[in-house]
Design a protein around this nucleic acid. Structure first.
Length: 424
RNA sequence: GCGGGAGUAGCUCAGUUGGUUAGAGCGUCAGAUUGUGGCUCUGAAGGUCGCCGAUUCAAAUUCGGUUUCUCGCCCCA
Protein backbone atom coordinates (compact mmCIF):
# COMPACT_ATOMS: atom_id res chain seq x y z
CA UNK A 1 0.00 0.00 0.00
CA UNK A 2 2.80 2.39 0.80
CA UNK A 3 5.36 1.25 -1.74
CA UNK A 4 3.93 3.84 -4.07
CA UNK A 5 5.77 7.02 -3.28
CA UNK A 6 3.46 9.22 -5.31
CA UNK A 7 0.43 10.16 -3.24
CA UNK A 8 -1.94 13.05 -3.23
CA UNK A 9 -1.08 15.97 -0.98
CA UNK A 10 -1.98 15.88 2.71
CA UNK A 11 -5.52 17.09 3.18
CA UNK A 12 -6.57 16.38 -0.40
CA UNK A 13 -8.52 13.44 -1.70
CA UNK A 14 -9.47 11.50 -4.82
CA UNK A 15 -13.14 10.80 -5.35
CA UNK A 16 -14.07 7.65 -7.23
CA UNK A 17 -16.31 4.62 -6.85
CA UNK A 18 -19.16 5.18 -4.43
CA UNK A 19 -17.61 8.37 -3.15
CA UNK A 20 -17.30 9.69 -6.66
CA UNK A 21 -20.97 8.99 -7.22
CA UNK A 22 -21.87 10.88 -4.09
CA UNK A 23 -19.77 13.80 -5.23
CA UNK A 24 -21.44 13.93 -8.62
CA UNK A 25 -24.85 13.64 -7.07
CA UNK A 26 -24.19 16.41 -4.56
CA UNK A 27 -23.19 18.76 -7.37
CA UNK A 28 -26.10 17.77 -9.59
CA UNK A 29 -28.54 18.43 -6.75
CA UNK A 30 -27.06 21.90 -6.33
CA UNK A 31 -27.53 22.85 -9.93
CA UNK A 32 -31.05 21.44 -9.81
CA UNK A 33 -32.17 23.15 -6.64
CA UNK A 34 -30.64 26.55 -7.31
CA UNK A 35 -32.03 26.61 -10.81
CA UNK A 36 -35.50 26.24 -9.32
CA UNK A 37 -34.95 29.42 -7.37
CA UNK A 38 -33.80 31.37 -10.40
CA UNK A 39 -30.07 31.26 -9.84
CA UNK A 40 -27.53 31.23 -12.65
CA UNK A 41 -24.21 29.52 -12.38
CA UNK A 42 -21.01 31.51 -12.26
CA UNK A 43 -17.55 29.99 -12.39
CA UNK A 44 -14.69 32.15 -11.23
CA UNK A 45 -10.96 31.40 -11.14
CA UNK A 46 -9.51 29.30 -8.39
CA UNK A 47 -6.88 31.92 -7.60
CA UNK A 48 -7.14 35.66 -7.17
CA UNK A 49 -5.04 38.51 -5.86
CA UNK A 50 -4.36 38.04 -2.18
CA UNK A 51 -5.67 41.53 -1.55
CA UNK A 52 -9.18 40.49 -2.55
CA UNK A 53 -9.41 37.98 0.25
CA UNK A 54 -7.57 40.11 2.77
CA UNK A 55 -9.99 42.95 2.24
CA UNK A 56 -13.09 40.87 1.72
CA UNK A 57 -12.81 38.28 4.44
CA UNK A 58 -11.01 40.50 6.94
CA UNK A 59 -7.37 40.82 7.95
CA UNK A 60 -8.01 39.64 11.49
CA UNK A 61 -9.82 36.42 10.59
CA UNK A 62 -8.19 33.04 11.06
CA UNK A 63 -8.57 32.33 7.37
CA UNK A 64 -6.55 35.33 6.27
CA UNK A 65 -4.13 35.25 9.19
CA UNK A 66 -2.96 31.68 8.92
CA UNK A 67 -4.86 29.48 6.50
CA UNK A 68 -4.33 30.84 3.01
CA UNK A 69 -2.17 29.31 0.30
CA UNK A 70 -0.41 32.40 -0.95
CA UNK A 71 2.37 32.56 -3.53
CA UNK A 72 4.15 35.20 -5.52
CA UNK A 73 4.91 34.15 -9.10
CA UNK A 74 5.66 37.71 -10.21
CA UNK A 75 4.99 41.13 -8.72
CA UNK A 76 1.59 40.28 -7.23
CA UNK A 77 0.75 38.09 -4.30
CA UNK A 78 -1.81 35.50 -5.36
CA UNK A 79 -3.93 33.19 -3.22
CA UNK A 80 -5.85 29.99 -3.82
CA UNK A 81 -9.38 30.96 -2.87
CA UNK A 82 -10.33 29.97 0.67
CA UNK A 83 -14.02 30.66 0.03
CA UNK A 84 -16.26 31.61 -2.86
CA UNK A 85 -17.98 34.86 -2.03
CA UNK A 86 -15.07 37.26 -2.56
CA UNK A 87 -14.45 36.00 -6.08
CA UNK A 88 -18.10 36.20 -7.03
CA UNK A 89 -18.35 39.76 -5.75
CA UNK A 90 -15.19 40.67 -7.65
CA UNK A 91 -16.71 39.28 -10.84
CA UNK A 92 -19.98 41.05 -10.10
CA UNK A 93 -18.15 44.37 -9.98
CA UNK A 94 -15.74 43.69 -12.80
CA UNK A 95 -18.59 42.98 -15.21
CA UNK A 96 -20.80 45.77 -13.94
CA UNK A 97 -23.63 43.45 -13.09
CA UNK A 98 -24.91 46.02 -10.61
CA UNK A 99 -25.72 48.30 -13.54
CA UNK A 100 -28.10 45.78 -15.06
CA UNK A 101 -30.86 47.08 -12.88
CA UNK A 102 -32.15 43.96 -11.21
CA UNK A 103 -30.75 41.70 -8.58
CA UNK A 104 -28.20 39.07 -9.50
CA UNK A 105 -28.81 35.56 -8.27
CA UNK A 106 -25.63 33.56 -8.75
CA UNK A 107 -24.52 30.11 -7.69
CA UNK A 108 -21.14 28.48 -7.86
CA UNK A 109 -19.42 25.21 -7.16
CA UNK A 110 -15.77 24.38 -6.89
CA UNK A 111 -12.71 23.67 -4.80
CA UNK A 112 -11.58 25.92 -1.95
CA UNK A 113 -8.24 25.83 -0.15
CA UNK A 114 -7.40 26.35 3.48
CA UNK A 115 -4.23 25.32 5.24
CA UNK A 116 -5.82 23.76 8.31
CA UNK A 117 -5.18 20.49 10.06
CA UNK A 118 -7.20 17.85 8.25
CA UNK A 119 -9.77 15.88 10.18
CA UNK A 120 -13.18 14.41 9.57
CA UNK A 121 -15.07 16.76 7.29
CA UNK A 122 -12.14 19.11 6.98
CA UNK A 123 -9.63 19.04 4.17
CA UNK A 124 -7.12 21.45 2.74
CA UNK A 125 -8.75 21.25 -0.64
CA UNK A 126 -12.48 20.92 -0.25
CA UNK A 127 -15.50 21.76 -2.33
CA UNK A 128 -18.29 24.16 -1.75
CA UNK A 129 -21.51 24.89 -3.53
CA UNK A 130 -22.88 28.28 -2.73
CA UNK A 131 -25.24 31.04 -3.73
CA UNK A 132 -25.02 34.81 -3.69
CA UNK A 133 -28.03 37.06 -4.21
CA UNK A 134 -26.77 40.57 -4.83
CA UNK A 135 -28.78 43.74 -5.05
CA UNK A 136 -31.58 43.52 -2.53
CA UNK A 137 -31.95 44.01 1.19
CA UNK A 138 -35.39 42.47 1.24
CA UNK A 139 -35.72 40.19 4.28
CA UNK A 140 -37.83 37.88 2.12
CA UNK A 141 -34.65 37.11 0.26
CA UNK A 142 -32.84 36.19 3.47
CA UNK A 143 -35.64 33.79 4.28
CA UNK A 144 -35.71 32.37 0.78
CA UNK A 145 -31.98 31.75 0.86
CA UNK A 146 -32.23 29.98 4.23
CA UNK A 147 -35.01 27.73 3.04
CA UNK A 148 -33.34 27.08 -0.28
CA UNK A 149 -30.37 25.60 1.55
CA UNK A 150 -32.73 23.29 3.37
CA UNK A 151 -34.42 22.21 0.19
CA UNK A 152 -31.00 21.35 -1.19
CA UNK A 153 -30.37 18.95 1.69
CA UNK A 154 -33.86 17.60 1.33
CA UNK A 155 -33.39 16.89 -2.36
CA UNK A 156 -30.48 14.64 -1.43
CA UNK A 157 -32.41 12.87 1.30
CA UNK A 158 -30.35 14.38 4.09
CA UNK A 159 -32.57 14.63 7.12
CA UNK A 160 -32.05 15.98 10.61
CA UNK A 161 -30.58 19.32 9.61
CA UNK A 162 -30.80 21.99 12.28
CA UNK A 163 -30.85 25.65 11.35
CA UNK A 164 -29.37 28.16 13.75
CA UNK A 165 -30.17 31.80 13.22
CA UNK A 166 -28.92 35.09 14.58
CA UNK A 167 -28.64 38.72 13.63
CA UNK A 168 -25.41 40.52 14.30
CA UNK A 169 -26.58 43.98 13.27
CA UNK A 170 -25.07 46.48 10.92
CA UNK A 171 -22.47 49.24 10.86
CA UNK A 172 -24.77 51.41 12.94
CA UNK A 173 -25.76 49.16 15.78
CA UNK A 174 -22.92 46.69 15.99
CA UNK A 175 -20.35 49.13 17.43
CA UNK A 176 -22.77 50.00 20.22
CA UNK A 177 -23.40 46.35 20.88
CA UNK A 178 -19.67 45.69 20.96
CA UNK A 179 -19.22 48.39 23.59
CA UNK A 180 -21.93 46.80 25.71
CA UNK A 181 -20.47 43.37 25.17
CA UNK A 182 -17.02 44.53 26.22
CA UNK A 183 -18.49 46.04 29.36
CA UNK A 184 -20.18 42.79 30.17
CA UNK A 185 -17.10 40.71 29.42
CA UNK A 186 -14.62 42.81 31.36
CA UNK A 187 -15.51 41.54 34.85
CA UNK A 188 -15.20 37.90 33.80
CA UNK A 189 -12.36 38.35 31.33
CA UNK A 190 -9.71 36.88 33.60
CA UNK A 191 -11.71 33.66 33.96
CA UNK A 192 -11.88 33.06 30.21
CA UNK A 193 -9.49 30.99 28.13
CA UNK A 194 -6.32 32.53 26.71
CA UNK A 195 -7.63 32.80 23.17
CA UNK A 196 -10.68 34.64 24.46
CA UNK A 197 -8.41 37.03 26.30
CA UNK A 198 -6.75 37.98 23.05
CA UNK A 199 -10.10 38.10 21.29
CA UNK A 200 -11.22 40.78 23.71
CA UNK A 201 -9.21 43.42 21.85
CA UNK A 202 -9.26 41.95 18.35
CA UNK A 203 -12.76 40.61 17.92
CA UNK A 204 -14.98 40.47 21.00
CA UNK A 205 -17.84 38.93 19.09
CA UNK A 206 -15.94 35.69 18.85
CA UNK A 207 -15.86 35.32 22.62
CA UNK A 208 -19.57 34.66 22.42
CA UNK A 209 -19.11 31.53 20.35
CA UNK A 210 -16.14 30.05 22.20
CA UNK A 211 -17.14 26.53 23.18
CA UNK A 212 -14.69 26.36 26.06
CA UNK A 213 -16.08 29.39 27.77
CA UNK A 214 -19.69 28.72 26.83
CA UNK A 215 -20.98 28.33 30.36
CA UNK A 216 -19.41 31.61 31.44
CA UNK A 217 -20.56 33.57 28.42
CA UNK A 218 -24.13 32.30 28.31
CA UNK A 219 -25.56 35.37 29.97
CA UNK A 220 -23.72 37.96 27.95
CA UNK A 221 -26.00 40.36 26.10
CA UNK A 222 -27.34 38.90 22.85
CA UNK A 223 -26.72 40.80 19.64
CA UNK A 224 -30.31 40.41 18.56
CA UNK A 225 -31.41 42.32 21.66
CA UNK A 226 -29.30 45.31 20.67
CA UNK A 227 -30.23 45.95 17.07
CA UNK A 228 -31.09 49.35 15.65
CA UNK A 229 -34.67 49.81 14.50
CA UNK A 230 -33.88 48.96 10.91
CA UNK A 231 -32.00 45.78 11.74
CA UNK A 232 -34.61 44.80 14.28
CA UNK A 233 -37.44 45.14 11.79
CA UNK A 234 -35.44 43.32 9.19
CA UNK A 235 -34.76 40.45 11.56
CA UNK A 236 -38.41 40.22 12.62
CA UNK A 237 -39.50 39.93 9.03
CA UNK A 238 -36.90 37.27 8.35
CA UNK A 239 -38.17 35.24 11.29
CA UNK A 240 -41.81 35.73 10.34
CA UNK A 241 -41.16 34.72 6.77
CA UNK A 242 -39.26 31.64 7.82
CA UNK A 243 -42.17 30.62 10.00
CA UNK A 244 -44.53 31.19 7.12
CA UNK A 245 -42.32 29.01 4.94
CA UNK A 246 -42.47 26.30 7.56
CA UNK A 247 -38.77 26.49 8.36
CA UNK A 248 -37.75 25.32 11.82
CA UNK A 249 -34.96 27.40 13.20
CA UNK A 250 -33.22 27.97 16.50
CA UNK A 251 -32.34 31.45 17.65
CA UNK A 252 -28.74 31.27 18.73
CA UNK A 253 -27.00 34.31 20.10
CA UNK A 254 -23.66 32.54 20.06
CA UNK A 255 -23.71 32.22 16.28
CA UNK A 256 -21.28 34.85 15.09
CA UNK A 257 -19.36 33.39 12.14
CA UNK A 258 -15.70 33.86 11.50
CA UNK A 259 -15.79 36.01 8.40
CA UNK A 260 -15.87 39.77 8.88
CA UNK A 261 -18.22 40.64 6.06
CA UNK A 262 -21.44 39.42 7.60
CA UNK A 263 -24.15 41.87 8.68
CA UNK A 264 -27.66 41.38 10.02
CA UNK A 265 -28.82 37.84 9.30
CA UNK A 266 -26.38 34.99 9.91
CA UNK A 267 -27.25 31.30 9.90
CA UNK A 268 -25.69 27.90 10.00
CA UNK A 269 -26.92 24.42 9.17
CA UNK A 270 -25.68 21.59 11.35
CA UNK A 271 -26.00 17.83 11.14
CA UNK A 272 -25.36 15.30 13.87
CA UNK A 273 -24.27 12.81 11.22
CA UNK A 274 -20.99 14.63 10.82
CA UNK A 275 -18.69 14.47 13.85
CA UNK A 276 -16.91 17.35 15.48
CA UNK A 277 -17.18 19.55 12.40
CA UNK A 278 -20.93 19.56 12.40
CA UNK A 279 -21.57 22.64 10.26
CA UNK A 280 -22.77 21.39 6.91
CA UNK A 281 -23.44 24.86 5.52
CA UNK A 282 -23.73 28.44 6.57
CA UNK A 283 -24.08 31.98 5.42
CA UNK A 284 -25.72 35.29 5.96
CA UNK A 285 -26.19 38.79 4.75
CA UNK A 286 -23.24 40.93 3.76
CA UNK A 287 -24.49 44.41 2.99
CA UNK A 288 -21.09 46.04 3.25
CA UNK A 289 -18.88 43.73 1.20
CA UNK A 290 -19.47 45.10 -2.27
CA UNK A 291 -18.63 48.59 -1.10
CA UNK A 292 -15.65 47.30 0.82
CA UNK A 293 -14.29 45.89 -2.42
CA UNK A 294 -14.59 49.20 -4.17
CA UNK A 295 -18.12 49.03 -5.57
CA UNK A 296 -21.32 50.86 -4.82
CA UNK A 297 -23.55 50.10 -1.85
CA UNK A 298 -25.08 46.77 -2.81
CA UNK A 299 -26.78 44.63 -0.18
CA UNK A 300 -26.45 40.86 -0.56
CA UNK A 301 -27.13 37.47 1.04
CA UNK A 302 -25.68 34.07 0.44
CA UNK A 303 -24.55 30.77 1.82
CA UNK A 304 -21.93 28.13 1.24
CA UNK A 305 -22.37 24.40 1.69
CA UNK A 306 -19.51 22.01 2.27
CA UNK A 307 -19.76 19.29 -0.35
CA UNK A 308 -17.53 16.84 1.56
CA UNK A 309 -19.71 17.23 4.63
CA UNK A 310 -22.77 16.67 2.52
CA UNK A 311 -21.12 13.49 1.26
CA UNK A 312 -20.44 12.33 4.82
CA UNK A 313 -24.08 12.88 5.72
CA UNK A 314 -25.21 11.08 2.58
CA UNK A 315 -23.14 8.08 3.52
CA UNK A 316 -24.17 8.12 7.18
CA UNK A 317 -27.84 8.33 6.28
CA UNK A 318 -27.34 5.96 3.35
CA UNK A 319 -29.16 8.23 0.96
CA UNK A 320 -27.04 7.39 -2.03
CA UNK A 321 -28.90 5.15 -4.42
CA UNK A 322 -26.60 6.71 -6.91
CA UNK A 323 -25.59 4.26 -9.57
CA UNK A 324 -27.54 4.18 -12.77
CA UNK A 325 -26.95 0.61 -13.98
CA UNK A 326 -25.36 -0.14 -17.28
CA UNK A 327 -28.12 -0.87 -19.79
CA UNK A 328 -26.39 -3.10 -22.29
CA UNK A 329 -23.37 -5.39 -22.08
CA UNK A 330 -22.14 -6.70 -25.39
CA UNK A 331 -20.68 -10.19 -25.59
CA UNK A 332 -18.66 -10.88 -28.69
CA UNK A 333 -17.42 -14.40 -29.38
CA UNK A 334 -14.41 -15.07 -31.49
CA UNK A 335 -12.42 -12.41 -33.24
CA UNK A 336 -15.16 -11.57 -35.73
CA UNK A 337 -17.95 -11.54 -33.19
CA UNK A 338 -15.89 -9.37 -30.94
CA UNK A 339 -15.18 -6.90 -33.71
CA UNK A 340 -18.75 -6.79 -34.94
CA UNK A 341 -19.98 -6.24 -31.40
CA UNK A 342 -18.05 -2.98 -31.32
CA UNK A 343 -20.07 -1.86 -34.33
CA UNK A 344 -23.36 -2.96 -32.78
CA UNK A 345 -22.65 -1.05 -29.60
CA UNK A 346 -21.99 2.12 -31.56
CA UNK A 347 -25.56 1.85 -32.89
CA UNK A 348 -26.88 1.03 -29.43
CA UNK A 349 -25.24 4.09 -27.94
CA UNK A 350 -26.43 6.47 -30.60
CA UNK A 351 -29.92 5.17 -29.90
CA UNK A 352 -29.43 6.52 -26.36
CA UNK A 353 -28.45 3.46 -24.34
CA UNK A 354 -25.38 3.02 -22.19
CA UNK A 355 -23.33 0.07 -23.29
CA UNK A 356 -20.01 -1.58 -22.57
CA UNK A 357 -18.16 -4.73 -23.53
CA UNK A 358 -15.11 -6.86 -22.87
CA UNK A 359 -11.80 -5.87 -24.44
CA UNK A 360 -9.65 -8.75 -23.32
CA UNK A 361 -10.97 -11.57 -25.45
CA UNK A 362 -12.37 -13.39 -22.46
CA UNK A 363 -14.49 -16.52 -22.52
CA UNK A 364 -18.23 -16.22 -22.79
CA UNK A 365 -18.62 -17.27 -19.19
CA UNK A 366 -16.26 -14.54 -18.08
CA UNK A 367 -18.10 -11.98 -20.17
CA UNK A 368 -21.42 -13.06 -18.68
CA UNK A 369 -19.96 -12.70 -15.23
CA UNK A 370 -18.76 -9.22 -16.10
CA UNK A 371 -22.22 -8.30 -17.37
CA UNK A 372 -23.72 -9.52 -14.16
CA UNK A 373 -21.23 -7.65 -12.02
CA UNK A 374 -22.03 -4.47 -13.89
CA UNK A 375 -25.73 -4.99 -13.25
CA UNK A 376 -26.39 -4.84 -16.96
CA UNK A 377 -30.08 -5.00 -17.82
CA UNK A 378 -29.57 -6.81 -21.10
CA UNK A 379 -26.73 -8.61 -22.84
CA UNK A 380 -26.24 -8.86 -26.56
CA UNK A 381 -24.58 -12.03 -27.74
CA UNK A 382 -22.87 -12.19 -31.09
CA UNK A 383 -20.89 -15.22 -32.27
CA UNK A 384 -20.28 -17.01 -35.52
CA UNK A 385 -23.65 -18.76 -35.69
CA UNK A 386 -25.46 -15.46 -35.13
CA UNK A 387 -23.40 -13.75 -37.78
CA UNK A 388 -24.24 -16.49 -40.25
CA UNK A 389 -27.93 -16.08 -39.57
CA UNK A 390 -27.75 -12.28 -39.49
CA UNK A 391 -29.19 -12.09 -35.98
CA UNK A 392 -28.16 -11.13 -32.47
CA UNK A 393 -29.22 -12.78 -29.25
CA UNK A 394 -30.76 -10.44 -26.71
CA UNK A 395 -30.74 -11.83 -23.20
CA UNK A 396 -32.66 -10.34 -20.31
CA UNK A 397 -30.45 -10.27 -17.22
CA UNK A 398 -33.10 -8.91 -14.88
CA UNK A 399 -34.97 -12.17 -14.48
CA UNK A 400 -33.60 -15.34 -12.98
CA UNK A 401 -34.34 -17.30 -16.11
CA UNK A 402 -32.55 -14.89 -18.36
CA UNK A 403 -34.85 -15.43 -21.34
CA UNK A 404 -33.26 -14.73 -24.65
CA UNK A 405 -34.55 -13.99 -28.11
CA UNK A 406 -32.97 -13.94 -31.54
CA UNK A 407 -33.48 -10.68 -33.35
CA UNK A 408 -32.48 -9.79 -36.92
CA UNK A 409 -29.56 -7.38 -36.91
CA UNK A 410 -31.42 -4.71 -38.84
CA UNK A 411 -34.16 -4.22 -36.26
CA UNK A 412 -32.75 -5.15 -32.87
CA UNK A 413 -32.64 -1.50 -31.73
CA UNK A 414 -36.45 -1.48 -31.78
CA UNK A 415 -36.45 -4.55 -29.56
CA UNK A 416 -34.09 -2.91 -27.09
CA UNK A 417 -36.34 0.12 -26.90
CA UNK A 418 -39.25 -2.14 -26.10
CA UNK A 419 -37.36 -4.00 -23.41
CA UNK A 420 -35.87 -0.98 -21.65
CA UNK A 421 -38.50 1.59 -20.79
CA UNK A 422 -36.97 5.04 -20.92
CA UNK A 423 -35.07 5.83 -17.80
CA UNK A 424 -35.00 9.35 -16.36
C1' G B 1 0.47 25.14 15.39
C1' C B 2 -0.74 21.46 19.64
C1' G B 3 -2.65 16.55 21.41
C1' G B 4 -4.64 11.08 21.00
C1' G B 5 -4.97 6.53 17.82
C1' A B 6 -3.25 3.63 13.71
C1' G B 7 -0.05 1.72 9.30
C1' U B 8 0.14 -6.61 7.83
C1' A B 9 -2.81 -9.17 0.36
C1' G B 10 -6.98 -4.83 -4.11
C1' C B 11 -10.60 -4.10 0.54
C1' U B 12 -11.82 -5.26 5.97
C1' C B 13 -8.84 -7.24 9.50
C1' A B 14 -6.42 -11.78 12.69
C1' G B 15 -1.35 -12.79 14.11
C1' U B 16 -0.83 -15.63 21.36
C1' U B 17 5.15 -14.70 26.34
C1' G B 18 9.97 -12.47 19.94
C1' G B 19 10.84 -18.76 17.01
C1' U B 20 11.60 -21.26 11.31
C1' U B 21 6.98 -21.54 5.18
C1' A B 22 2.76 -14.44 7.82
C1' G B 23 -3.21 -16.13 7.82
C1' A B 24 -8.85 -15.43 7.24
C1' G B 25 -13.19 -13.26 4.99
C1' C B 26 -14.56 -10.44 0.81
C1' G B 27 -12.84 -9.30 -4.09
C1' U B 28 -10.04 -10.94 -8.61
C1' C B 29 -8.75 -14.97 -12.09
C1' A B 30 -9.51 -20.06 -13.70
C1' G B 31 -12.01 -24.83 -13.62
C1' A B 32 -16.45 -27.98 -12.42
C1' U B 33 -20.64 -26.44 -17.32
C1' U B 34 -16.78 -27.07 -26.22
C1' G B 35 -21.12 -20.54 -26.56
C1' U B 36 -24.56 -18.47 -21.12
C1' G B 37 -24.44 -14.58 -15.28
C1' G B 38 -26.35 -14.75 -10.18
C1' C B 39 -26.04 -20.06 -5.96
C1' U B 40 -22.49 -23.98 -4.78
C1' C B 41 -17.77 -26.53 -4.91
C1' U B 42 -12.40 -26.76 -6.27
C1' G B 43 -7.96 -24.37 -7.28
C1' A B 44 -4.69 -20.15 -8.35
C1' A B 45 -2.59 -15.42 -8.31
C1' G B 46 -1.59 -11.56 -4.96
C1' G B 47 2.70 -9.34 0.91
C1' U B 48 10.61 -6.28 1.29
C1' C B 49 4.17 -6.81 7.68
C1' G B 50 4.89 2.12 6.02
C1' C B 51 10.30 3.54 5.98
C1' C B 52 15.28 3.87 8.62
C1' G B 53 18.10 2.34 12.61
C1' A B 54 18.94 -0.35 17.43
C1' U B 55 18.56 -4.83 20.73
C1' U B 56 18.79 -10.28 19.77
C1' C B 57 21.15 -16.62 17.65
C1' A B 58 16.25 -14.98 15.80
C1' A B 59 11.78 -9.04 15.01
C1' A B 60 5.25 -8.26 11.81
C1' U B 61 5.93 -8.70 17.25
C1' U B 62 10.60 -5.02 21.70
C1' C B 63 12.99 0.09 21.65
C1' G B 64 14.24 4.88 19.12
C1' G B 65 13.51 7.97 15.00
C1' U B 66 10.80 9.22 10.62
C1' U B 67 6.64 9.41 7.46
C1' U B 68 1.61 8.88 6.10
C1' C B 69 -3.30 8.32 7.46
C1' U B 70 -6.96 9.18 11.09
C1' C B 71 -9.66 11.49 15.21
C1' G B 72 -9.80 15.79 18.31
C1' C B 73 -8.26 21.20 19.98
C1' C B 74 -8.58 25.86 17.26
C1' C B 75 -11.65 27.65 13.32
C1' C B 76 -14.91 26.92 9.63
C1' A B 77 -18.21 24.48 4.95
Amino acid sequence: MAKNTLRCIEGTKDYFGDEGKRFTKALAAASDTFWKYGYEQITTPVFEKTELFARGIGEATDIVEKEMYTFKPSSDFLTLRPEGTAGVVRAYLQHNMHKQGSISKLWYAGPMFRRERPQKGRQRQFNQVGVEALGSDDPLLDAEVVSMGLSYYQSLGITGIKTRLNSIGCKECRPEYIVKLKQAVEPILSTLCTSCQSRYEKNVLRIVDCKKCADKTKDLPASYDHLCTECDEHFSTVKMTLEALGVDFLLDQSLVRGLDYYTKTVFEYTSSALGAQDAIGGGGRYDGLVEELGGPKVPAVGFAIGVERVMIAMEALSCCNCSAPLMIYGIGLGETGHRCMAGLLARVRSAGFSADMDYEGKSMKAQMRAANRRNALLTLILGESELEKGIVVVKDMRSEEGEQVEIPLDKFIETLKGMIPTLK
